[in-house]
Amino acid sequence: MTDMDNRCRLVLVLPELDDSDRQAERLEAALSGGDVASVILTQGALDDATFQKQAERLVPIVQQAGAAAIIAGDSRVAGRVKADGLHVAQGAEMIAEAVEKFTPKLIVGAGGASDRHQALEIGEARPDYMFFGKLDGDIKPEAHPKNLALGEWWASMIEIPCIVLAGTDPASALAVAETGAEFVALRQAVFAAEAPGAVVAAVNALLDEKAPRFED
């Protein structure tokens, strides 16, 4: 187990952006900052064709940096662009169908759980990870208390790894790490910054210094 594997790692959620050149530039800058486990690409208001075209450009950038490229929501796009994974947040039934259809060819991650009951129901499908928080839910500097609580409960009870969305302040990643969650997700904290790579480097340094260590 490496030092990175021994503590909470960083996941990036890339916001949708009409300017694909700017999108690629920001992504490359962020990934230059150090360890990133995976990047979740979101479609937002983009139409299917535009999203697929962007993903075709962005997925190789993610993979060349050694991270897993995960497409949110659209399994067809995930397959066409040769992504590593699919993020599904449309309820337990659809998550179960995606796990059955695409595992182990793709990483299949789950979101959309707003309470413990929903989380356990989704967990019965055995997704590769559970994501607590909405992909675009980082609207305050700190992580949402409910997401922190769900992450702490899940990490203490369930073997399936979890990702918890932090806030717009990069330092909020530490609060997520302190729950015992395996991964912390950052969106605006990285991509709204002037220097995304510097933020990624700073968060990794913070987690190296202060994040709890997992048992071997």
Results as ranks from 00 to 15, higher is better:
Met1Ile: 09
Asp3Ser: 13
Met4Ile: 08
Met4Asp: 14
Met4Tyr: 13
Asn6Ile: 00
Cys8Gly: 03
Leu14Ser: 08
Glu16Arg: 13
Glu16Pro: 11
Leu17Met: 12
Asp18Ile: 07
Arg22Glu: 13
Leu27Thr: 05
Glu28Trp: 07
Ala30Phe: 05
Leu31Gln: 06
Ser32Pro: 02
Gly34Met: 09
Asp35Trp: 12
Val36His: 04
Ala37Tyr: 15
Ile40Met: 04
Leu41Arg: 01
Leu41Trp: 07
Thr42Pro: 04
Gly44Met: 06
Leu46Gly: 07
Asp47Glu: 12
Asp47Asn: 13
Thr50Met: 13
Phe51Asn: 07
Phe51Arg: 08
Gln52Tyr: 05
Lys53Arg: 15
Gln54Glu: 09
Gln54Asn: 11
Glu56Phe: 12
Leu58Trp: 06
Pro60Lys: 11
Ile61Phe: 05
Val62Arg: 13
Gln63Val: 00
Gln63Pro: 04
Ala69Thr: 06
Ile70Glu: 08
Ile71Phe: 04
Ile71Gln: 02
Asp74Lys: 07
Ser75Gln: 12
Ser75Cys: 08
Gly79Trp: 07
Ala83Tyr: 10
Asp84Ser: 11
Asp84Trp: 05
Gln90Pro: 00
Gly91Tyr: 02
Met94Pro: 00
Met94Thr: 06
Glu97Ala: 13
Ala98Phe: 10
Val99Tyr: 05
Glu100Ala: 15
Lys101Trp: 00
Pro104Tyr: 03
Val108Ile: 02
Gly109His: 10
Gly109Val: 01
Gly112Lys: 09
Ala113Ser: 10
Asp115Thr: 01
His117Asp: 13
Ala119Met: 05
Glu121Pro: 00
Glu124Tyr: 10
Glu124Ile: 00
Ala125Phe: 03
Ala125Gln: 12
Pro127Val: 07
Met130Gly: 06
Gly133His: 04
Lys134Val: 05
Ile139Thr: 15
Lys140Glu: 14
Pro141Arg: 01
Pro145Tyr: 03
Leu148Cys: 06
Leu150Asn: 08
Gly151Thr: 09
Glu152Val: 00
Glu152Ser: 15
Trp153Gln: 01
Ala155Ser: 14
Met157Leu: 13
Glu159Val: 10
Ile160Phe: 08
Cys162Ala: 05
Ile163Tyr: 10
Leu165Ala: 13
Thr168Ile: 04
Ala171Glu: 15
Ala175Met: 08
Ala175Asp: 15
Glu178Cys: 12
Glu182Lys: 15
Phe183Met: 12
Ala185Trp: 07
Ala185His: 09
Arg187Met: 06
Gln188Asn: 14
Ala189Ile: 01
Val190Leu: 03
Val190Trp: 04
Phe191His: 07
Phe191Tyr: 09
Ala195His: 15
Pro196Lys: 06
Ala198Asp: 13
Ala198Tyr: 05
Val199Asp: 00
Val199Glu: 00
Val199Thr: 03
Val200Met: 03
Ala201Gln: 14
Ala201Val: 03
Asn204Met: 00
Leu206Lys: 10
Asp208Pro: 04
Asp208Trp: 11
Glu209Cys: 03
Lys210Thr: 06
Glu215His: 14
Asp216Phe: 14
